[in-house]
Write a protein that binds this DNA or RNA. Structure first.
Lengths: 336, 336
DNA sequence: TTGCGAAATGACAACGTTGTCATTTCGTTA
DNA sequence: TAACGAAATGACAACGTTGTCATTTCGCAA
């Protein structure tokens, strides 16, 4: 066998093989222009022959940075995929890799705990994806030397935050109803503990109150279609119900099915708007108008915010990524 | 201000503050039992006061390992969330963090390229999530010192692989039809380039051929409901079509809607089975029988395989995680 | 050929840990 | 009190890079 594995190949090994100094090998990697071409070729050949791979630990130790951004997933939901996608793409583009840890099911993780664990890992900054409340949210202080961005709709006293504009999205949907002559809007919520659901409800409530309308009692759902169906059955009995805002598309679909089963048409008798714009994937010829959030954009913003803050970890900003109303035909214009 | 930030606090700083040697601080962290309690307390106090955090780079450099597993996402689909969830949980449990990179949209990444990039990062082993074919699949050789596991339905000559048993799942669904008196099964595929779709088709074809049935021409879909709907319209015209296997639930739903619109009932006139068992989230009272894969389990297995192979990176194994048929009422028993 | 400035290369320390081995301190027993 | 083995602690090198600064080599003009 030609290559016996004498552990790992170091720059020194390459240097010896190429008949140059260790430092020259380093230069070939970091500032190739400064090395004469003939020398460079010799070094490259040696690296190839020995199967050299730069040692991440030694490099980071010397440089004092890792080129990695930490991501803490407190919660892994459907929309999280696109967000991670955005984070990963933006990271890639800026030459960072991601280091990821996840809250385990059942485990109760605080921000402080997450920060403690992250700071043992190779990261220059970190992103927390937080979609539910945690105990120490208000008291948490990020490590001074580790830029921290929290993806959450709540404002944080010291950390930068990034969020979908959930309230704004709900507001937009309500306005859409009201501007078309609807006198009221019913609301079907998602799981109680979800911040998204809470914010969507808050926006709905605010939009109605801004018009001097008393918001009706919201109906409690759990994100799934069956809970929407149950809500729909209840709503079908309310004569003043002409408009329903459901906190996601699945429940909106449940509502529509229930209305249909009760002999009511959408949008002829009742108008419906959902959230997330994903029903079209599952329902052919879907007519549901829906508020869509740009999760990918959200991830990109979060990552950019971290990178921008690497030099000044204590800086603080608040970013809201607006939603978009994807218009289909599930809302009737009562003025017509 | 008490604590001016003189860059980072090192073990040496702590040692001085606590009036002990650097090595004792190291011991407090790595083998606390071997340090007298009074000393330990003093060191802990100093660490607290100075805000000491162990330096990952220095530690890894010395230890020669990182405690991180690399994950390469060639493709980020819906099912990937659960898989990542499984990987992350298993990693957590075994004391590993994850380092992640992602193929960017449009970019063409080979296994070799992915391995090259990963090996510059802090990882002890790696997992490739590969749901489409890549150019160098057969020729790829993993770095000798970096255990590599590929999540893919294809067998690889040198790397360990882990996969859902897609073929088996399709086979199971077909058997389920045939055992209930159906004489044939039609198939609606997903996107052409998807390995999942290809494997499901292969399993379907094999199951029919095993019973001496000539498989009808498969219908090409794209995973979304509309393509299923189109397929359903076509199938409604085929008098011999009593059973349809759709490569996912969304398309299965599209098929069912089309059949209904053509005046055919499910399961009375035509039976349908889907894949992934997720329709119930979107459709109230869903009746669709579906083959469900345990993506979370898949992730766990992949991670365990990597960790098991850390000592012997060249070992090779093939793991198949079986699917489960979630039975509802979309299949009619023709024998009754 | 010599001299010169610029380009290329090299020697050595340093980054912050942990392993090895030597030294000090402690608690017992003679 | 002295002597001893065990427990606790410390000094120093090493891990594989990069930064600093010194040295060598090069290309060109005198």
């Amino acid at each position: 066998m030609a290559t016996m594995d004498k552990k790992n190949v170091s720059m020194n090994d390459v240097a010896i093989a190429a008949g140059v100094s260790l430092k020259t090998v380093s230069r070939v990697i970091n500032e190739p222009e400064s090395v004469r071409e003939s020398t460079r070729d010799r070094v490259h050949a040696a690296m190839e022959a020995l199967g050299f791979r730069a040692n991440f630990a030694a490099r980071s130790l010397k440089l004092g940075r890792y080129g990695c951004i930490g991501v803490v997933l407190f919660h892994l939901s459907g929309g999280a995929v696109d967000m991670i996608d955005g984070i990963a793409d933006a990271a890639e583009e800026r030459g960072f890799a991601l280091t990821m840890i996840k809250k385990r099911a059942g485990e109760k993780m605080t921000l402080a705990e997450a920060a403690r664990r992250m700071s043992q890992l190779p990261v220059d900054g970190m992103i927390f994806n937080l979609r539910q409340m945690v105990d120490d949210f208000d008291t948490f202080e990020a490590p001074k030397d580790l830029k921290t961005v929290i993806i959450t709709p709540m404002e944080h006293p010291t950390c930068s935050t990034v969020s979908d504009d959930q309230e704004g999205g709900a507001h937009m949907a309500c306005e859409y109803f009201l501007n078309r002559g609807h006198k009221n809007v019913y609301f079907v919520s998602g799981k109680k503990e979800s911040l998204s659901s809470q914010c969507r409800m808050k926006g709905w409530r605010a939009a109605l109150e801004a018009r001097g309308i008393e918001p009706p009692e919201p109906l409690q759902g759990d994100w799934n279609a069956d809970s929407g169906y149950a809500a729909g059955l209840a709503l079908a009995d309310k004569p003043d119900c002409t408009a329903v805002l459901a906190a996601n598309d699945c429940m909106a679909n449940g509502v529509m099915m229930a209305l249909r089963d009760k002999g009511l048409g959408v949008p002829d008798d009742v108008s419906v708007i959902g959230f997330d714009d994903e029903l079209y994937k599952t329902i052919p010829n879907s007519i549901l108008t829906s508020v869509k959030f740009r999760h990918r954009e959200l991830g990109i913003r979060a990552l950019n915010e971290v990178v921008a803050g690497l030099e000044a970890p204590s800086s603080r900003s608040r970013t809201l990524v607006s939603g978009v109303l994807v218009e289909r035909s599930s809302v009737r214009d009562l003025r017509a």
